[in-house]
Design a protein around this nucleic acid. Structure first.
Length: 203
DNA sequence: ATCAAGATTACCT
DNA sequence: GGTAATCTTGATA
């Protein structure tokens, strides 16, 4: 299903571009977690861009702190943070060193290791067929299903533990654009991007 | 030391 | 559609 010879791991240069470019380009790509005993993989279908240079909603807007320091790496690193006392959210750092921009992964379409994802998320079997669409349809859900936590923050995505493999770009007509969800600052920026019509979207 | 807010989710009506 | 849960983090004193 995922032939890594035909679909190479995305290189550094993919990530060292402006955050809006990378955000749109990430749609349709496949994120893989090989760190556990199971290989988990899913197609990225919903993202949001955060740019600390201009964006008050970004964790990096007010400069470097212990929590957000990974965001100031060059592109291609994994930034995972904890929020609301319960959930982790994972991001792909973009741009040049010290810029402070990242793409939040809000939803994926599960491909490999689906049973493991179900166990991670629910600790039980699915109650119904359609509950599969609740498996990874939100940033906290994605991290729970993939097992991403604080220990994954700072990983280099050009290595082979957690990484993203190339896939064809989505057609422009398949990319939806909207305001970001769940923020209270810089609310009007249209920086959420998603695959139109996908069943695994967060809303 | 204290405090308020938060890139969310599950559960209720 | 509305809201409680829950605790880390960063800011302020």
């Amino acid at each position: 299903m995922i032939n890594t010879a035909q679909s190479p791991v995305l290189p550094r240069k993919f990530y060292i571009r402006p955050v809006l470019t990378v955000a749109k380009d990430l749609l349709g790509k496949v994120i893989v977690n090989k760190m556990g005993s199971n290989i988990l993989a899913g197609r990225i279908i919903e993202v949001e861009a955060y740019d600390g240079k201009v964006d008050k909603a970004s964790h990096s807007y007010n400069g470097k702190t212990k929590r957000n320091e990974v965001m100031f790496n060059e592109g291609g690193y994994f930034y995972v943070y904890f929020t609301y006392g319960a959930y982790f959210c994972c991001n792909v750092v973009t741009g040049k060193q010290n810029h402070g921009s990242a793409v939040l992964i809000r939803a994926i379409e599960p491909l490999l290791g689906i049973n493991k994802m179900i166990t991670n998320r629910f600790g039980r079997e699915l109650k119904s067929e359609k509950e599969i669409y609740n498996l990874t349809s939100g940033p906290g859900k994605v991290c729970k299903a993939f097992g991403f936590t604080k220990v994954h923050s700072g990983l280099d995505l050009t290595n082979r533990s957690v990484f993203i493999v190339n896939q064809p770009r989505l057609k422009k007509s398949m990319i939806g654009i909207s305001k970001r969800i769940g923020i209270t600052k810089s609310v009007s920026l249209p920086w959420r991007f998603f695959e139109i019509g996908n069943m695994y979207l967060s809303r």
